[in-house]
Design a protein around this nucleic acid. Structure first.
Lengths: 226, 226
DNA sequence: TGCCTAACCAATCATATATTGGTTAAATCC
DNA sequence: GGATTTAACCAATATATGATTGGTTAGGCA
C-alpha cells in the first residue's frame, strides 16, 4: 500500500526536481523504471493517476508529455470541402461575415481603411477575373483583419479556404475575362464607408446585402449550367 | 517557334486522350519527355503555361497534378492558440455562436432537440467539473450540429478547439469540484426551448446572454487570480 | 542566340528499422 | 492465494535511409 503511493511520490519528486516546461517529453517508461528504481507496473499506476489529473498525457509511439493533451483537429480544409457544397459555404458566409464587418466597424484603424481602399482600387483596375477575385479576397480579408481579433481572422481564413476549394472544384471557368457586372464595386464602397464611419449596423447590413447578391449570382450561374 | 508551341500541343493532346480526373498525378517530367518525344526544357515551358492557366499545379518532390493548387491551411489550432488569448476567444464566441443558435432554430429536428436535452441532463448530474465541461461542450456542439451545415460545424469545432487549448493553458484548476453556480442550467434550458419553438430571435439572444455571463465569470476569476 | 543535355539541389515520398505506451501471462514473492 | 515483478509481444509512432520529383544551372552544340 505504501509502495503504490511510493512510486507516485518518487515520480513527483523527480518531476519537481527537473521542473520541466509544458509539452516537454519525459523519459520512456522503461528508462524511468531504472531511474526511479520502481517496477514498470507501479510506475504506470503513478502515471495513470497523474494523467487522470491532467498533469501529463501519454500516447503509444510518441511518449509521455507534461501538460494537458492537445486537442484533435477537425479543421482539415480538404476534408471539410469534401463534405460540403457551395450552398452551405455561402450560408456560412452570410452568417459569419456580417458579424465580422460589425466588429471591424468598431475596431478599424485608419490604416485598415486605407488597406481596404487599396484593395478596391486594385479590383476596379483588374484586367482578368483572376485578378479581380484576388483583390476581392484581399478586401474581405482586410475587413477581417480590421477586427484586430486573431481568432476571427483565423476563422475567416478557414472559411475562405473551404470556399475556394469547393467553388473551384465545381465551376471551372477557364476563360479569363474582366467582370462585367459592377454591382460589387458600389457595395464594397458602401461597406468600407460604413466601417470608416464606425456604423456597425450599416456595416453588417451592407455586408449581408453584398453576400446575398453574390449568392444570387452563384445560384443563377448554376441554373444556367443545367 | 513552331517547336515551342508544339510541346504544348502534344501535351494537350496527351491529356485530352487520357481525360484524367482532377487531382490525378501525371507522369514525372523525365518520363513525359520520352513519352511525348520532346526535350525537358520544352516540356517545362508547356507545363509552365498550363500551370499559369490553372489547369495543373506542380510541387517539388510531389509531382504534377491536374486541377488548381490546394489552398494552404492557416487553420493550425496550436498556432492560433499561441497568438491569441481568452478575451479574443470569448469575443469570437459572442459573435459566432448566437448566429449558429439562430440557424439551429430554423433547421433543428426533433432528434437534435432530444440530443440537446440529453446533454443538459448529463450536465445537471455531473459530479465533477470535468464532467460538467464535457456535457456543456456536447450541448453547444449539438446546437451547431442542429444547423445541419457542415461548414458551420467545422468552424465551431475550430473555435472550440482553440478555446480549450487557450483556456487550459492559462488557468489550470486541478481541483475537481461540482459547479456551484447554476445560472448556466436555466440559460441552457431557455436556449433549447427557443430552438425547439423555432424562435430564431430568442435563440440568438439567449445564446448571447449565456455567453456574456460566461465571459463575466471568466473575467471575475482572472481578476481574483491577480 | 536558342536549344539540348547532363548534372546537381532541396523537397518529398517510400520503405525499413527502432522506439514507445499498452497488454498479457508466466514467474516470483510475501 | 493474492499481489508484484518480469518478460515478451502488439500496434502506433518516430527516425533513418534511399529513391523520386520539380527546379536550377552550366557546358556543349547547331
Amino acid at each position: 500500500m505504501d509502495q503504490g503511493q511510493g512510486a507516485l511520490t518518487q515520480l513527483r519528486a523527480y518531476l519537481a526536481q527537473r521542473d520541466l516546461p509544458a509539452n516537454s517529453r519525459l523519459p520512456a517508461e522503461r528508462e524511468l523504471c531504472d531511474i526511479l528504481g520502481v517496477s514498470r507496473g507501479e510506475l504506470r499506476k503513478a502515471l495513470a493517476i497523474m494523467e487522470e489529473n491532467r498533469e501529463l498525457w501519454r500516447h503509444v509511439g510518441k511518449g509521455t508529455f507534461i501538460g494537458s493533451r492537445p486537442v484533435e483537429e477537425f479543421s482539415n480544409i480538404a476534408a471539410i470541402a469534401e463534405l460540403t457544397n457551395p450552398r452551405e459555404v455561402m450560408q456560412a458566409r452570410l452568417l459569419i461575415e456580417p458579424q465580422i464587418a460589425r466588429e471591424a466597424a468598431l475596431n478599424a484603424t485608419a490604416g485598415d481603411v486605407a488597406e481596404m481602399r487599396l484593395c478596391m482600387k486594385m479590383s476596379r483596375e483588374a484586367k482578368t477575373w483572376r485578378q479581380y477575385e484576388n483583390s476581392d479576397n484581399a478586401l474581405h480579408r482586410a475587413v477581417a483583419e480590421a477586427t484586430h481579433n486573431t481568432v476571427l481572422v483565423a476563422l475567416f481564413d478557414t472559411l475562405n479556404a473551404v470556399r475556394r476549394t469547393v467553388v473551384w472544384g465545381r465551376l471551372r471557368s477557364k476563360v479569363d475575362r474582366p467582370p462585367s457586372d459592377h454591382h460589387s464595386f458600389a457595395e464594397h464602397e458602401a461597406l468600407v464607408r460604413a466601417i470608416e464611419e464606425r456604423d456597425m449596423e450599416a456595416a453588417g447590413q451592407t455586408m449581408r446585402r453584398h453576400l446575398s447578391h453574390v449568392q444570387g449570382n452563384l445560384l443563377a450561374s448554376s441554373q444556367a449550367a443545367e
